[in-house]
Write a protein that binds this DNA or RNA. Sequence first.
DNA 1: AACAGGGTCAACCGCTTCAGG
DNA 2: TCCTGAAGCGGTTGACCCTGT
Length: 300
Amino acid sequence: MERHRDEQVIKKGPWTAEEDEVLMNFVNKYGPKDWSSIRSMGLLPRTGKSCRLRWVNKLRPNLKIGCKFSAEEERVVIDLQARFGNKWATIASYLPGRTDNDVKNFWSTRQKRLARILQSPSSPLTSNLEKIKGKSPALVHEMPTPKAPEFNTPQMKEAASSSSKCQSCPSSSMGNSEILQIMSLPNFMMTPNSINLDSTTMPLLDTIETDHHNKSSTQTSLQHSFTHLPFLPESHNSVLGLCESNFLDVFASTRQAVELENVSQINFGSPFLELDGTGRNDGRADSFFDELPADMFDYL
DNA sequence: AACAGGGTCAACCGCTTCAGG
DNA sequence: TCCTGAAGCGGTTGACCCTGT
């Protein structure tokens, strides 16, 4: 509770059923407008903003209350966020029964989850930070400060070393490790349709040499790295699918687009919905990361 | 059973845009 | 053209619930 200029008490906090009823009656009588008159008429001790928000988010007809986002809705949100950015009201207009608040909450939950996975200090991916810093000094202050990675198992030690050095491609010390590094950046976002770039991501694209001597050597190197990561055996095929797909092309085309258009978001269709090479898009929603085996994120 | 951590959701805040005087 | 209040929007916060330890 707080006092307003005119000494009328403004109520804050959760709405009661009685207040909802008063608000509903008001809207039924006058329509969803003139929100501030609800208080001036003495109907409710709430601000117009508060009344409007309550109506829009909870009392409006045809809202999907207490109903989780379907796979299709998730896919739409991810796709539209890539197109429109954080225009939650715009995105919500494509989803009947969903409010901008719903979409916003859904997205922030996803972001938090992803950030937590990628920012895990125990991730060996952070081992490449020093190398990246050396290549791009201007980047140093923008990067999160990682703890020294811990490689507890022989598998992890092997994975860490192989991600920057590959026996079958000795000269290919760049490419795969940088891709892993970019994927681990907190602000890096990859959706089924686009890559979002920021000031920390873009300079790193320059370090990816997907066309250096030839693409297949980098691909082989990346493949080698993934093979040595400690996934469950049954997950290796899925992971290796990344290397066999246009995974590298995505980064290569992204870099080219940055050079040509000076843009911060690259749209490229839905390459990751077709990882199995069949063009499959069964409507399953989720970002590129959800196409990966679950134990991949356990490892990260 | 108690606790911690994460997820979800409702609501508030501050800023911008719009419309009317 | 400027001012003011209303409406709209995105970011943030905090309470509550659930789950794992």
